[in-house]
Simulated scan of single mutants.
Amino acid sequence: MNYISVFCGSSSGNEDIFIKQATILGQTIAQQGYGIVYGGARVGLMGAVADGALSQGGEVIGVIPGFLQKKELEHKNLTRLHIVETMHQRKALMNELSDGVIALPGGYGTMEELFEMLTWAQLAIHKKPIGLLNIDGFYDPLIMMSQRMMEKGFLKEEYKSLLIEANTSELLLDRMNTFIPLKNEKWFEPANH
Rank of each mutant, 00 (worst) to 15 (best):
F7Y: 15
F7K: 02
S12E: 10
G13E: 13
E15A: 07
F18K: 09
K20S: 11
Q21R: 10
Q21P: 00
T23R: 13
T23G: 06
I24M: 12
I24G: 12
G26A: 06
Q27M: 14
A30T: 03
Q31M: 08
Q31T: 11
Q32C: 01
G35M: 08
G35Y: 09
A41S: 15
G44E: 10
L45I: 14
M46K: 13
M46G: 08
G47Q: 07
V49G: 05
A50T: 09
L54Y: 04
S55H: 06
S55W: 02
S55T: 04
Q56F: 06
Q56R: 14
G57T: 12
V60T: 12
I64R: 13
I64F: 14
I64A: 10
P65N: 14
L68A: 05
Q69N: 06
L73A: 06
L73N: 01
L73P: 05
K76G: 01
I83P: 06
I83C: 13
V84S: 07
E85T: 09
H88Y: 10
K91N: 03
M94V: 02
N95P: 01
N95M: 12
E96I: 05
E96N: 10
L97T: 00
G100H: 07
V101M: 15
V101N: 08
V101G: 05
I102K: 04
I102H: 02
I102M: 01
A103H: 15
A103K: 12
Y108K: 10
E112F: 11
F115D: 00
L118T: 08
W120F: 04
G131N: 10
L133Y: 03
N134A: 13
N134R: 14
N134T: 03
I135E: 08
G137V: 07
L142A: 09
I143N: 02
M144G: 07
Q147W: 00
Q147P: 00
R148I: 07
E151C: 00
E151F: 00
